[in-house]
């Protein structure tokens, strides 16, 4: 046997050496740390990459994981082992702000850098869909109005409630509840559809108060015709590939990068595009934000430069790379730039 002398003790010593060295070095962080929404993730990586190319600072590290989780991480406290920026596809909540305050994160900057459309899309070889919020509601809500009465959703095909739609089995792949997309989907499509289809009035007539009505509106059917997708849009696309009858909910930018596989549905007669979202004609859109921990400005090298670069016209403007990827640029970008330059923290939520 050749193993007469064992490396065990040497290894043990070097482990101790590493541990000792690390406690010394574990101080200065020289790159910006970003986390949050997976919808904002591609935009943030595009900016991070261009930032690394054009500045002397290292590229920021960008994580996904979801808007809510990102804001929680932002509010964990102040210090180099906490994140600097949380990307979010929905606005910060009072509960997040309270958590932040409890952990000493007193000042947060809210930066809105653009808009994202939410589109319904089906297989490229399937029929055209010209949807209205009421159609989506009739397809996937738990309770709908049929012949003037509230009934458990009996619809199996799109044509059953709107003759203009194809006679195709209903299967909607909606965003899961942990998605920032879900909030907009609920608010701008489901609740709107509830109102348009008359279900809201019927709920109210049955003696429900306002909150209960809204809650009843947002209940979706659970018989398998509506499937919540908790993963990324790629998962929705894969499901849609497997079942050609399905209609999926995607971000506008995702659709624009997969136009060879997807056929987009119109909503209220408007084709979703950067122009129609920016003009407000296309109804289902939402602002995209990132939240910056103000205490880290001037402490983490490159943080201020990164956020200024992010909202600059070259990046977030209508001709910038973000718009090329599918971002609808914010008409009020100049105000945001001024806000970032002045480092104004956000006020209380209205």
């Amino acid at each position: 046997m050749s193993f007469t002398k064992l490396p065990t003790f040497k290894l043990a010593v070097s482990t101790v050496a590493i541990l000792a060295a690390s406690t010394v070095v574990a101080s200065a962080r020289d790159q910006v740390q970003v986390t949050g929404s997976s919808t904002v993730l591609p935009y943030a990586t595009i900016v991070a990459e261009a930032f690394g190319e054009n500045f002397d600072f290292p590229s920021p590290v960008v994580e996904g994981g979801g808007s809510g989780a990102g804001r929680k991480k932002l509010c964990e406290g102040v210090g180099e082992n906490t994140v600097d920026i949380a990307n979010s596809s929905s606005r910060i909540k009072q509960s997040d702000i309270d958590l932040c305050l409890a952990n000493g994160v007193t000042e947060i900057m809210e930066v809105r850098f653009g808009y994202d459309g939410i589109v319904f899309a089906s297989d490229v070889n399937g029929p055209e869909f010209a949807l209205n919020p009421a159609d989506v509601y009739n397809a996937i809500a738990e309770t709908v109005v049929k012949d003037g009465a509230l009934v458990a959703n009996p619809h199996a095909q799109w044509a059953e409630f709107n003759a203009a739609l194809p006679a195709q089995d209903i299967l909607v792949l909606s965003p899961g509840t942990k998605h920032g997309t879900r909030e907009v989907f609920d608010e701008k499509v489901i609740v709107q559809g509830c109102e348009d289809s008359g279900a809201m009035a019927a709920f109210a007539a049955s003696g429900m108060d306002e909150d209960a009505t809204e809650e009843a509106c947002m209940k979706l059917r659970t018989d398998g015709r509506n499937v919540d997708i908790d993963g990324d849009y790629t998962e929705t696309l894969a499901r849609l590939d497997a079942d050609k009858n399905a209609i999926g909910v995607f971000g506008l930018s995702f659709y624009q990068n997969n136009t060879d596989k997807l056929r987009v549905a119109t909503m209220g007669g408007v084709v979703p595009s950067a122009e129609t979202v920016a003009s407000g004609d296309y109804p289902v859109s939402r602002p995209l934000y990132f939240y910056v921990k103000k205490a880290h400005l001037g402490v983490i090298p490159g943080l201020k430069e990164y956020i200024e670069f992010f909202v600059s016209d070259d990046v977030a403007g209508p001709d910038g790379p973000l718009a090329a990827y599918g971002l609808v640029s914010d008409p009020a970008l100049a105000e945001t730039q001024a806000m970032v330059a002045a480092e104004t923290p956000m006020g209380p939520l209205e």
């Binding site: 590493i18 060295a21 690390s22 070095v25 574990a26 790159q31 740390q33 986390t35 993730l41 943030a44 990586t45 991070a48 990459e49 690394g52 290292p58 590229s59 590290v61 960008v62 994580e63 996904g64 994981g65």
Partner: peptide, 20 residues
């Protein structure tokens, strides 16, 4: 936080093991 977009190479050991 290792499931992230990291664009910079980590440095040489030993300090490099603390880089993203």
């Amino acid at each position: 936080g290792m499931v992230a977009f990291v664009d910079n190479y980590p440095g040489l050991p030993l300090e490099g093991v603390l880089d993203p």
